[in-house]
Design a protein around this nucleic acid. Structure first.
Lengths: 149, 149
DNA sequence: GCTTGTTAGTTACAAAATCAACTATTACAA
DNA sequence: TTGTAATAGTTGATTTTGTAACTAACAAGC
């Protein structure tokens, strides 16, 4: 009855999810414990930290996050004084988001953690493996659904 | 204000999640459209298809899924006649899960789709990249949270 | 100017995931 | 035995996500 003809653990969507979850766990614990953030909130914080001022939809575009997720994350981050919002005077639909000083300190902290964490994750890999891994993952992340039948 | 010192898109937990999501999308669409399954249900179905009869906690152990997720997935799969449950006579806490004929046909179908899909995902990669990718991802999937500060 | 369509962002409701508490059964040691 | 702990699995309450409908502001053609 078992199917020796297919190795589930090597099926890429499954394997990628396992790797992603396992390798996110300990970092997730840190931004949750230190700042009470969810994944969505961490992502918004980092986008603002890395790219500077952005609007919600710019973040959504870059992070592949739906606008409702971002809306809620921004609301939380604003309530907790990590982020401030400012209406665009030219186009009053737009809101420019920026980190507060407080938010910037949180970003600096987590950003340092992230760098050490990334180093830890890859310390078992060769130089070649590290480079190839990121290159291949970027290709896969750019995969847009298309027909394959 | 922007931080040129950190490339978010190369941060492994983030990059892995992006790759995992992008590369799961089209496959997810198929098991959802054809069989109305969720990710959890698809995973249980595949575990039973690949490994044969299993208990819920064996699946949880292999798939790194919480028992409540599995409990609910099994309930759905049983309602929809993909799976049958049988009490263990020796230890009446245990339930052995197996695919019905109907469930097996669904597995066979999706399993074929999965193989073609995997081939499509990796068609842009070299032989070396493919092998290294799966090897490295398996290492990362085995990452257990530990101290890195 | 007006209508029609588009974009930015929010809100409401439904679906799903998470967490804790629960039942039932077995293990095991006093 | 019998009392305590452990394991398998389920259920309920809460949180988070997903989907669709919504408001507000702008754009472009007539």
């Amino acid at each position: 009855m078992p199917d020796d003809n297919f190795d589930l653990n090597l099926f890429l969507p499954y394997l990628l999810n396992q790797a992603a979850e396992a390798s996110s766990l300990a970092f997730q614990q840190i931004y949750k414990d230190r700042y009470g953030m969810l994944r969505t909130e961490w992502r918004v914080l980092f986008h603002l930290g890395v790219y500077g001022q952005m609007t919600a939809s710019e973040i959504g575009l870059r992070a592949n996050m739906h606008k409702t997720k971002i809306s809620r994350a921004v609301q939380k981050l604003t309530e907790r004084r990590f982020v401030t919002r400012a209406r665009d005077e030219g186009d009053r639909r737009l809101e420019h988001l920026t980190l507060t000083d407080f938010g910037h300190r949180a970003y600096d902290d987590l950003h340092r953690v992230a760098q050490r964490y990334d180093a830890m994750l890859t310390e078992g890999l060769t130089e070649v493996e590290r480079d190839m891994l990121r290159g291949v993952l970027q290709k896969l992340a750019a995969t847009r659904p298309r027909d394959f039948t």
